[in-house]
Design a protein around this nucleic acid. Structure first.
Length: 198
DNA sequence: AGAGTGATCATG
DNA sequence: ATGATCACTCTC
């Protein structure tokens, strides 16, 4: 039986959360219908020291306030005037670290995803694409994935993927972050066709 | 490779 | 108030 990932899953360092999130299922229930997919690509953002993170240097604002919440909260931001991206907050309260969800393998509500995306392919291969496919926007910012009944992550596989099944690479779109841009903080499943930037 | 798009935030 | 930026996507 599927169950929500518990608080302790999220209250760990963001790299561990990013790696163990691979293979779990993100679900959004809209108008009683389940829309969801298996997480196949993530990126870890390491907080105050991480030049690529929204919380770099201790920055705290209405936009990124959720990053300071307890592990398990959902941080959704709006960017480029048209795109939403969804993160899972990791660590403990006051520790602004998070994991960006970059790609899913579509599993439930695929027809609805196609309608929301206006496409048949590439439904969830990219952080803004998956938000569009799952109808995730800023109204879901600050939701607790551990206790919510309409946005959560279901434990799909009990055992974690071994390092040999996970590629660690540089994060996407953070070239401005200097040395931090080079860190291998992007994780995806080896050979998975639903990963972004194939 | 370039355009689109507007909230957000650091300046002042 | 103003201007630069942006954890992206689509189309060419």
């Amino acid at each position: 039986m599927p169950e929500h990932l518990p608080r302790c899953f999220y209250r760990r360092d963001p790299v561990t959360v990013a790696r163990t999130l691979l293979g779990q299922k993100l679900v959004h229930i809209v108008h009683g219908q389940r829309i969801g997919g298996i997480i196949v690509e993530t990126e870890a953002y390491l907080g105050i020291a991480d030049k690529a993170a929204h919380s770099y240097g201790g920055r705290r604002s209405p936009r990124n306030a959720t990053m300071w919440c307890d592990g398990g909260y959902c941080y959704v931001y709006f960017t480029y005037g048209m795109h939403h991206c969804a993160n899972v907050v990791a660590g403990r309260p006051g520790e602004p670290v998070a994991v960006l969800l970059r790609a899913l393998e579509p599993v439930e509500g695929i027809d609805t995803m196609q309608t929301l995306r206006g496409r048949r392919q590439d439904l969830c291969a990219g952080p803004a694409r998956l938000c569009q496919a799952l109808a995730v926007d800023r109204s879901l910012d600050g939701i607790d994935l551990v206790t919510s009944d309409h946005l959560f992550i279901e434990r799909q596989r009990r055992q974690v993927y071994p390092p040999s099944k996970i590629v660690a690479a540089a994060r996407v779109g953070v070239d401005y972050a200097g040395t931090w841009a080079r860190q291998p903080l992007r994780f995806y499943l080896v050979g998975n066709p639903h990963v972004s930037r194939r």
